[in-house]
Amino acid sequence: MLTKRIIPCLDVKDNRVVKGVNFLNLRDAGDPVELGARYSDSGADELVFLDITATIRSRKTIVELVEKVAENVFIPFTVGGGIQTVEQIDELLRSGAEKVSVNTAAVGNPNLLAEAAQRFGNQCIVLAIDARRSKERPGKWQVCIKAGSEPTNIDVVEWAAKGEKLGVGEILLTSMDADGTKAGYDNELNKAVTDAVNIPVIASGGAGTLEHLYDAIVDGGADAVLMASITHFGNYTIKQIKEYLASRGIAVNL
């Protein structure tokens, strides 16, 4: 049976791992290569590295970082942040990433997803969606781009379904409302998206307790749960997380 994945997320800025609240107030969480290797050794199922600076200068840094991570990490990892072209995806995959996540560029040019999926295979193209509860349309979420700074009129559930149609292999769904709050995932959002698509969905944003992870899987229907604050700062180990989920009947790779 396929197990549910526990995925620590490393937001990288100026070659350091950082973590904020609602995408703001960043706090230092260590060296990305060291932290990546530590997670790999301690039983994480996968890692996500997001370049949150995503400038031309940081592009080169992130490729070098991916190379270093790949020398030390023997579990899959996804890289994202500011990726705009098939060539950039190619470069990151060749540097050792398993998957590449695309966010803002796909909103402007959805065909990028189709082109990348046909060349590299669906399984390595991840559509990252930053979702915010819509004030105008209650019960709906709007897609935000440019690291969450720019809301669009695109509906999150419709965009996720379109991503699947275009050939992406996975959705990394971040609730901006919940991100960094440790108050729990937005499981209404997770449920709305997991019901609408047939590809794996990684729930992200809001993990604070072990029960939150369980809820995202059971109530949200998530195939994987992403977390940062609760594991970076030592509240829980990966092993504790997996033992807890296993004790509640969730299949994990312990």
Partner: peptide, 13 residues
């Protein structure tokens, strides 16, 4: 075959 989440992505026994 359809009827399950595809891609088959993650750790399986």
């Amino acid at each position: 075959p359809p009827g399950r989440v595809i891609p088959h992505m993650g750790w399986n026994l």
